[in-house]
Structures are given as C-alpha cells and as structure tokens.
Design a protein around this nucleic acid. Structure first.
Length: 433
RNA sequence: GGAGAGGUGGCCGAGUGGUCGAAGGCGCUUGAUUCGAAAUCAAGUGUGCGGGGAACCGUACCGUGGGUUCGAAUCCCACCCUCUCCGCCA
C-alpha cells in the first residue's frame, strides 16, 4: 500500500506507474473518494467536538432546565453522528479498497515490459549441463529411483500433490539444511514458522485470500489461511511494532510448507514437481531502513547465487520487468536454474525470487522504526527472497546430476546431509508397495 | 474441552460512569549539581487521523467488535488472547 498523501500529490506519476505495471485503477474515483472522506471526517469531528463540550458542561451543577436542553442536544448529536459515521466508514473502506490495488512504485532501473519475456537477463553462471546420452526429466528419473509417488497421492489429495519417499526424503531435508546452514553463517535468525496465518496478515503482505482466482487456501470457519510462503509469517512477525533503528537490518530465515491452489495455472511447463499445491521452502526476509534496502536486495541475490553455485547448478539471473513485478515489489530478481529435462532439450526454470518491497508491506502491517532525531516513526522496508524451494531444488539436482545408468550423483555440498554420494536404481524389486 | 483469574502507555501497575490520554514507579531525553561519573533534584517523554507553513488546534485509541447513556477504560453482550487447575494428547 502506498501513502495516501503521496498518491494524491503525485497523481501523474501514479497513473504512469500503474500503466507500466499493467494495473488498472480508477484514479479519478480515488481522488473523489479521498475528498469525500476528508469532508466527512471533518463533519464527524465537528459533531464529536460539540458532543464532548456538551458533556463537559453537564458534569457541573446547572439548572434543571439547561440540563434538559443539553440532553436534548446530545440526543440529536448522537443521531447525526450515527449517520455521518456510517458514511465516513463507507468512504474510507471504498478508498482503502482502491488504495490496495495501486501497485508499489518501481525502481528506475527495472526493465520496462509486459510479460516475463521482457525480463532482462543480467547474468549467467555455469554452462547448461551436457550429457552423452539423452537426459530424462525429473519425473522419469524419480520414477526409476522410486523417489516420488504421484499415483497414491492423487488418491489421498488429488492432483499436484506427491509423496516423497526413500532418498527423496533425505534430499529434501538436505536442501533445507544446506540452505539454513548458509543463512546462519550469513547472520540470519532461523525460524520454522506456522504454516497458517490470519487473513489480515496475508492481506498486509499483499496476498488476496478471497475471491476468484485466489492462490490461497482458506480454513473453513476460521480466519486462517494456509500460507503460500513464509514471507507471510516472517513479515507478520513484527506487525504493529516500532523497532530500533540500530537493530536494522533484521535478517530472518524461515522454513515452512507452502500451499498454493494454482488456480488457472494449467499444464504448460508445469510437469511433475514444478508446479504443485504443496512444497517446503526456506525463505529469507529482511526488515531494513530505507537506506539499506537496495543493498539488501543485492545481498539476497548474492546469497541465492552462493546457494546454487554451491550446488553446482548452472543458472541465469533475470531482472524482472515492470509487468512481471507483482503489486508489492519495487524491484525483483529471479534466479532460473538450468533444468535439462524441461521443454525441448532443457531450459531455465525459476527457482528463486528476491524482491525489495520498500515500505509497501510495512505501511499496511504498521512495521516502523524510530530514526535518531526524528519525531515520527518511519516505515521500514521489507524484502523477501527464496533461499531454496525444495521441490524445484529437487528438480534441478535430479536433472543436472543424472547419469546414463539412471543413477543420480549427489552434489558434494549435500552429501553430509543426504548421507550418501549417489542414488542408484533398485536392483531388487521394491518390496514395500 | 471443563472451572477460575486476567488483558490499561516502551515496561510494571492504579483506576468501577463526567474532574482520565489516563495516578505512581521503571526506563528514556534534557537541564541543575559534579573535574567527570554515580546518587539526588527539576522538566519533558504514546500512536493514528483531519486542519495548519509552523507553534499548535481538533478527534480517536485502555484486547477486538457490538450495545446501554447526554457522556464509557469504567456498565451489558459476543468474540479473541494470556495465566492457573482439571481432562485429553504429539
């Protein structure tokens, strides 16, 4: 959410930005509602002021006649207020709803464009893995190794769910541990977070849990939702707090499950683990001062690169264009890992995403800090970035490290956590079914 | 899940209808004292919203949402959360 007064005094900039970001908001209506709200607030406060005055007069001993007149006036004020307050609240709610639709401002260097095809590749690391055999995709590899069960999952939960089994369990835990170890070294506080959060936290972070096409599962008869990312719980952690400037940047790493309905995201390049309803993820989150946030985004990207370089997985970095930023982000970098089994002859697939949300989330969640010499508390900046999404990490490992005989070599960095160097197809038929 | 107690400012804690944005204490800031510090003394010290160039003025906020009343931190109702005991359970 952007600041109301900033919007009103920079209308042209906002209109232009909305257009760049492919978001349509009726700004004329916004301005009209803002004015209506202002007038109603003024009316309401005038009435309240008189009401307080009347009650102040009445606490002293006064002639019965005067008292009766004041009581009458008080009753009248009460009726008037009831009506005015209702209209004020309506105007406020309507304005707020529109305000939420207005996307964040955009970093001046973010590429302009409409779709992810306009994202700008800023870096490549490694070269796409070459094989002297025809590489398989992770679904086939996992099948041969007995690592993922889709069929039984479909009975239990329906499509786009899975059971990891056998060594895939170690692999998933290994990826999490590997990432968490690095983040601890980088000075992050580690968390495992709730997998659910209240609706207003989701909304504060910028998710819309209601309505058609929502990505969010809701829990019936409660105000809780399954989280789509630990960004939600970590960001909500400091809601309504005023923090010390000296504590910034606050770096948090959270492990959680992530749940996504994936409404309206069919087929395409979403085979296997690529797009699923549930996965586990280690997420980075930062609360920073405004001066720190740009550098912190670069730092997040550097950490993500460290993680994928450590795994020896080739990747490229893209600077996301205006149309692909989402509402909250001021700037966003994605890492796309090389996935040999993806598409025809392999392609890069998104594995991380790091965003600087500036004060957009903090304003909604009231996360502030006190700056030396400033009277008013200021909004913090928030950033989030993927350390490792286990599901896509598994894809990248299986596909890049597959061998001609169907086995998969475990990347050096993961071996201490997996407890083995190589995953081999079972030579004897699996007895457990 | 059952019984009881409770949720007040950065923290502790008083307050049962108007004199309460709220006593007192701690903390913090500034000043006095001191060579300096501690101790002591004095003053200040919440947030949002509206207006204003500003000083400031108005308004709201005592877990959340409703209600009673001319007037609610205070009375009533519902919900949420915390603590203690019991039950259940990983």
């Amino acid at each position: 959410m952007l600041d109301l007064h900033y919007i009103l005094s920079n209308l042209e900039e906002i209109r232009e930005n909305n257009q760049q970001r492919k978001v349509q908001v009726d700004m004329d209506r916004f301005v009209a509602l803002a004015e209506e709200r202002r007038i109603l607030i003024q009316d309401v406060e005038d009435k309240r002021s008189r009401r307080n005055e009347v009650s102040r007069l009445m606490k002293d001993k006064i002639p019965q006649e005067q008292r009766q007149a004041l009581i009458e006036e008080g009753r009248q004020l009460k009726d008037d207020l009831e009506n005015l307050e209702l209209r004020m609240k309506q105007a406020q709610d309507d304005l707020h709803a529109l305000q939420l639709q207005i996307p964040n401002l955009t970093h001046p260097e973010a590429p302009r464009g409409h779709t992810d095809e306009d994202n700008k590749e800023v870096k490549r690391w490694g070269t796409p893995t070459r094989f002297d055999f025809t590489p398989k995709d992770h679904v086939e590899i996992a099948e041969a190794l007995g690592l993922i069960d889709w069929e039984q999952a479909s009975k239990v939960t329906g499509s786009k769910f899975y059971f990891l089994r056998g060594d895939a369990v170690w692999l998933e835990l290994a990826l999490q541990q590997y990432a968490l170890r690095i983040l601890e070294q980088e000075g992050f506080q580690l968390f495992t977070t709730p997998d659910l959060a209240r609706r207003d936290i989701l909304e504060g972070i910028g998710f819309n849990p209601r309505g058609e096409g929502t990505q969010i599962y809701s829990i019936e008869n409660t105000d809780l939702c399954l989280i789509a990312t630990a960004e939600i719980t970590l960001g909500g952690f400091h809601q309504d707090q005023i923090l010390e400037e000296t504590s910034a940047p606050i770096l948090c790493a959270g492990l959680s499950h992530c749940f996504r309905t994936e409404a309206g995201a069919p087929g395409r390049a979403s085979r296997g683990l690529y797009r699923v309803h549930q996965f586990s993820k280690v997420e980075m989150f930062a609360f920073t001062t405004p001066e720190q946030s740009n550098a912190t985004l670069e730092r997040f990207l550097a950490i993500e690169e460290r993680i994928f370089q450590g795994l020896g997985i080739p990747y490229r970095v893209v600077d996301c264009c205006t149309g692909d930023l989402g509402g909250q982000a001021y700037r966003k970098y994605d890492i796309e890992a090389w996935m040999p089994g993806r598409g025809e002859g392999g392609s890069y697939g998104e594995v991380t995403s790091a965003s600087n949300c500036t004060d957009y989330q903090a304003r909604r969640l009231m996360i502030r800090y006190r700056k030396e010499g400033e009277k008013k508390p200021l909004f913090m900046h928030t950033l989030n970035g993927t350390a490792i999404a286990a599901s896509r990490g598994i894809i990248a490992v299986l596909e890049n490290y597959q061998q001609a005989d169907g086995s998969v070599v475990i990347p050096e960095a993961l071996r201490p956590f997996v407890g083995k160097d190589i995953l081999r197809p079972k030579t004897t038929p699996a007895s457990a079914a």
